[in-house]
Simulated scan of single mutants.
Amino acid sequence: MSNSMADLRRKIGTAEDLQSVVRTMKAIAASSVEQYERSVLALQDYYQAIELGLSACFQKEGIATPLHSTTTTGKPKVISAIVFGSDQGLVGQFNDVITDFAVEKLSDVAGELKVWAVGERVHGRLADSGLLLHGLFPVPNSVKGIAALVGQMQIESISDQLDHESTSVFVFHNRPQTGSLYEPVSQRLLPLDSQWKQRLTELQWPTHSRAEILGGHLVTLQSLIHEYLFITLYRACAESLASENASRLAAMQRADKNIDELLETLHTQFHRQRQGSIDEELFDVVSGFDALSS
């Protein structure tokens, strides 16, 4: 009996230590979700401002635009994909969801396929799926690290492809939803063709007074395009990090609930065995007293 109670004490202590770690990770994930969600919300206004600036440039007559044609050049088409995942575990189905989504979308593409993975976990899953991996980027640990990551991605995976009409670049990531949920999404980053220009040209200006372009129109347009590519990747990374921490928070909440249920079961078993031990000792005392009295 004493060995069983000692074993239960050990299990209870281990479960309580594990619960302390889980609750610490849950608090960290909740704090991270908040900062990344604030970052995503702040990016919405800036992203809209960049698109409106491009729209103003395209609606200005006489401005030459460095766009690619949509005609076939005869060269083998190169399809590049950037897939955002995680470096760390305890995120539930986060990496599996985005991997399955990217593999499904890229399975129908024709041409040479190059894939860059952001995160070691998603890198391994993409490799297992049979995709040709061209590079691996680390996942930033904070909002401040996103800009450095995006700059590195622009240098290694995008800068050499801006001048090639036969190149398309797609971005895959998880986008946060309400209630600690997320959904996989994709976006075409390149080429900057007439279809992309037409979409921006048709944007409605939010006020009655349209903005005027000061200085060199081509210089302004090139700067806006650079900012457009940067902020698109930045927003995708921020949304992926917000989704990752939301998934980790949900996983830690489930783990905390399971540990609570386990502790309740262990405490019930411990008190039952302890009460049984007390009853046996009392029975022995009463039996001995009865034997001495008779």
Rank of each mutant, 00 (worst) to 15 (best):
S55A: 10
T232K: 10
G62M: 00
V139A: 00
A15Q: 09
S186Q: 07
V91T: 15
S80I: 07
L292W: 11
V219M: 05
I79S: 11
T232V: 07
F289S: 13
D17K: 10
L282S: 07
L113G: 04
S223V: 08
V103M: 07
A246E: 11
I79Q: 14
K26F: 07
V103D: 04
R188G: 03
I146T: 01
G151D: 05
A110R: 15
I259N: 10
A30M: 03
R38F: 05
D290E: 10
G215A: 00
A147G: 09
E37D: 15
V21N: 08
Q152R: 14
R254N: 09
F101N: 12
M252D: 08
E183G: 01
L292D: 15
L241H: 05
H164L: 12
G89K: 10
V40F: 03
P206T: 01
P66A: 04
L189N: 03
S293H: 07
A127G: 11
H164C: 04
A56N: 12
Q269P: 02
G276D: 02
T167G: 01
V21G: 06
L190K: 01
A42L: 07
D45Q: 12
D7R: 09
L189T: 04
Y234R: 10
V33R: 15
D260S: 14
G53W: 05
V143S: 09
L292R: 13
L214D: 13
L106T: 03
A117N: 01
D193Y: 02
P76E: 08
G130P: 03
K197C: 13
I155M: 04
I79C: 12
A127L: 06
E16F: 03
I28D: 12
Q88M: 08
Q19T: 07
H173N: 11
S186I: 00
K26A: 15
H271R: 15
S287D: 01
K60H: 11
S287K: 12
W196E: 12
F283I: 07
E227Q: 13
C57D: 07
A30P: 00
W196F: 15
E212K: 13
D260R: 14
L113F: 02
P176R: 13
D256N: 01
T72M: 06
T232W: 09
Y228T: 03
L133E: 11
A236M: 04
A148V: 06
Q48V: 11
I12E: 01
L282C: 06
L229M: 03
V78C: 06
A64E: 11
G130Y: 02
Y228V: 03
L229R: 03
F58P: 09
L136I: 12
L18T: 14
K197P: 07
T70G: 06
F58C: 05
S194F: 07
A147V: 08
S69F: 04
I146M: 00
T70Y: 06
A81C: 04
Q275I: 02
